[in-house]
Write a protein that binds this DNA or RNA. Structure first.
Length: 723
DNA sequence: CGGAATAAGCTTTTT
DNA sequence: GCTTATTCCG
């Protein structure tokens, strides 16, 4: 450590300090650091440790632009940069001459795996045989494109259930992110689709090809292309040479593909620091695998060191007692037990209520009572297993005019009008993106799939979009809109067109179409577009706006309670997944019953039940002072279809065993809830009888890649060859 | 050919 | 309840 250690180092505990100052400063602006794994239990100052690590490195002379900081969201990256900047400012003896004394530290390479991948791929595009202006498809765009091909290949017409587009995409994505063969993935996760193995492979292969003709990459492609790029020693060396330090947050949620990328960037682990908590791994459905963090050390020779943070600064001890009791039932984990630095407090409560309506009442009563004692709404959160669970509560909050913001369950980006406007921008950005064009054209009155396709064929033959469009005939009903579209294309189509004002220009064009299609709802939808317009202003370019938006869409939709403003106080509603990394004074967890915790779809295998346990653990450990688990005795069976015979709702969560119950207050008399069998297996889906399937022998035009430079790695070919 | 109306299926979590 | 596929009418 330097003789004049910054004062903030003293505020850290010994383990944190060890992690922050890991490695040997060499005096020339570099720090030599062996690989390190930091196991940071919930609330043990993980963010603070990472932020201080960054600050410390910068203070040793490391160039912030040479630090790669992988986080799980854009927001987390910004928060990290802000806190690192804060720490640095403090050690700079205020009044100093150093440049960024106030505000966030500039960390150009802080972001998610996907965002970093997009940036690197654009930078190295020509060496990789990629179009540097590629678009990024978000999940639903990807599903739509896949669906198009599914349709072309004739699968939508089959009577025996061919998997839906979302299922298809989930299968492909899981296989790619875990690197496992399709058949194994199907057998493991989608056994009812095994009969479609060959068809799916053909579908995925055609999908990979189509994305290339459209010059688009989906989420998985970003990682796959990054991995492919790293397979070339020279490019790998170039990329690795950009960074002296690689810090990875939430390492427990990395998948095989991501772990491989890190290994390729730093084969010896030099400068690599992984931070995470195996007890909070909750993304297995996305291919994340807890084994990566459990075996992180062994991939290096000598094995990586490990530092464990157990001192919890967030919660009162009774909350931790409950969480610790829950995890004591878990099998695989680095042994640890959280200890509160804060001391005693109220025991968490298990509240048994009659039904979901009573649950909503109880939560609102509790929230208001907390506010009376001075806890603002913003410091309180209601968490749930899946997005619909807050429905009753939302209705009730709206009725009582209590403002709230809901995170998770991405509805905003899926709204038709939002997608329309973004499709216009995407089409301008990448005229080869025919899916965007297809969507835009069909906004016009009198223009359906057939006409749109014909127009797109014409456009494909032209270099400039505006030129192509002027060659097409407008549908009679849309002449004015059509002319306006051509004018718009001419104005904002060229890549060098100024970004400022483009979004408004698109909205101006779209507004009449919006009013025509949605008559009554137009005003609400126009307001959504205003929200988006405000966001657009914060990005420097169209490309950046579109990419960032696809990779990290706004997670909150606030139209229900009358969009709360930034400075206003509002209650937080969130899925447990979206609550990752956050904390509040008071936390309510809805529907803690068997069927939700664990979810009824996850009761098949032991490892998925363990993941559900961790999910409840994450929910509990968000709470600083008060925690309440709510257990409705019955669910309103309003629109429950017939399959719901064996509905497991109402049974006590299997995670609330005697040891956990002992840490809870207000436990009702035993047996009250245990009259339903808690262990029903998920219903077997009848295997589809082999139906004769028409093979439309989709003619795939060979994709041509004309790039100025000769690519070193043909990433495109590698992406196609996966299937 | 486009678009509205009807019928049938399917429901977790998200970068 | 929602989305998606098919049918039918202008």
């Amino acid at each position: 450590m330097t003789p004049s250690a910054p004062p903030w180092l003293n505020r850290l505990n010994p383990q944190q300090r060890a992690a922050v100052t890991w490695g040997m400063p060499r005096g020339d602006g570099r720090v030599q650091a062996a690989p390190l794994l930091v196991i940071a239990g919930a609330g043990t100052g993980k963010t603070a440790t990472l932020a201080h690590r960054v600050a410390w490195l910068v203070e040793q002379g490391v160039d912030p632009a040479r630090i790669l900081l992988i986080t799980f969201s854009r927001r987390a990256a910004q928060e990290m940069a802000r806190r690192a900047g804060q720490a640095l400012a403090q050690s700079l003896d205020t009044g100093g001459v150093c440049p960024p004394a106030q505000g966030a530290l500039q960390l150009p390479w802080a972001g998610t795996f996907h965002a970093v991948a997009a940036r690197l791929l654009r930078l190295h595009a020509s060496a990789l045989g990629l179009d540097s202006g590629f678009s990024v498809l978000d999940r639903s765009d990807a599903a739509d494109l896949l669906d198009l091909i599914r349709h072309e290949q004739g699968w939508s017409a089959t009577r025996s259930r061919f998997p839906r587009k979302d299922t298809c995409l989930a299968i492909a994505s899981f296989a790619l992110n875990t690197g496992r063969p399709l058949r194994e993935v199907l057998a493991h996760g989608w056994p009812w689709c095994l009969d479609w193995h060959d068809a799916l492979r053909k579908l995925f292969s055609a999908y990979a090809e189509r994305k290339q003709t459209h010059r688009v990459l989906d989420f998985d492609d970003l990682l796959l292309a990054w991995e492919a790029a790293l397979s070339d020693p020279q490019i790998a060396a170039q990329m690795a040479a950009r960074f002296d330090h690689i810090l990875v947050d939430e390492y427990q949620d990395t998948n095989t593909l991501q772990a491989g990328i890190l290994r390729a960037l730093s084969p010896q682990g030099e400068g690599l620091m992984a931070v995470g908590d195996d007890a909070q791994s909750i993304y297995a459905f996305r291919g994340a695998c807890i084994d990566h963090i459990l075996s992180f050390g062994e991939q290096f020779d000598p094995p990586a060191q490990r530092i464990t943070l157990q001192r919890n600064y967030r919660s009162v001890q009774p909350v931790l007692d409950c969480a610790n009791a829950l995890m004591a039932g878990s099998t695989q984990a680095y042994p640890k037990s959280l200890q509160a630095a804060r001391g005693p407090g109220a025991r968490p409560v298990l509240a048994t209520v009659a039904d979901e309506r009573a649950q909503a009442d109880r939560v609102i009563g509790g929230v208001l009572a907390q506010r009376e004692t001075g806890v603002p709404l913003k410091e309180q959160a209601v968490l749930f297993r899946n997005a619909q669970h807050s429905e009753w509560l939302e209705v009730e909050l709206t009725r009582r005019k209590i403002p709230f913001v809901k995170h998770g369950g991405l509805r905003f980006m899926d709204a038709a009008h939002v997608k329309d406007v973004l499709a216009v921008l995407r089409w301008m950005q990448q005229p080869r993106d025919a899916l965007a064009g297809f969507r835009v054209l069909q906004c016009l009155p009198g223009m359906g799939p057939a006409l749109a396709e014909r127009a797109l064929a014409v456009c494909a033959a032209h270099e400039r979009l505006s030129a192509g469009l002027s060659q097409c005939a407008s549908p009679p009903a849309a002449v004015a809109h059509w002319e306006a579209l051509i004018a718009l294309t001419r104005d904002i189509g060229p890549r060098e067109a100024r970004w400022r004002g483009q979004f408004d220009a698109v909205c101006d064009w779209y507004q009449p179409l919006l009013e025509r299609r949605y008559r009554d709802g137009a005003a609400v939808r126009a307001a959504d577009l205003q929200v988006l317009a405000a966001m657009a202003g914060h990005f420097g370019s169209r490309e950046q706006f579109l990419t960032e938006l696809a990779l990290d869409p706004p997670s909150a939709s606030g139209d229900l309670a009358g969009a709360p403003y930034r400075d206003e106080d509002y209650l937080i509603l969130s899925t447990v997944h979206s609550a990752k990394g956050q904390e509040w004074d008071a936390v309510w967890v809805l529907n803690v019953t068997d069927g939700n915790f664990p979810n009824e779809y996850a009761t098949g295998a032991a490892h998925s039940i363990e993941e559900e346990r961790r999910l409840l653990y994450v929910a509990m450990t968000r709470a600083r002072n008060t925690l309440e688990l709510i257990e409705p005795r019955a669910f309103a069976v309003t629109h429950q279809p017939r399959l719901g015979d064996r509905h497991v709702t109402g049974a006590r969560s299997r995670f609330l065993n005697a040891a956990v119950l002992a840490t809870l207050e207000g436990v009702p008399s035993q047996g009250a809830l245990n009259d339903v069998d808690p262990c029903s297996t998920p219903p077997a889906v009848p295997g589809g009888a082999a139906a004769a399937v028409a093979d439309s022998g989709a003619a795939q035009s060979a994709t041509e890649h004309r790039q100025s430079a000769v690519p070193r790695v043909d990433v495109a070919a590698r992406l196609r060859s996966r299937w």
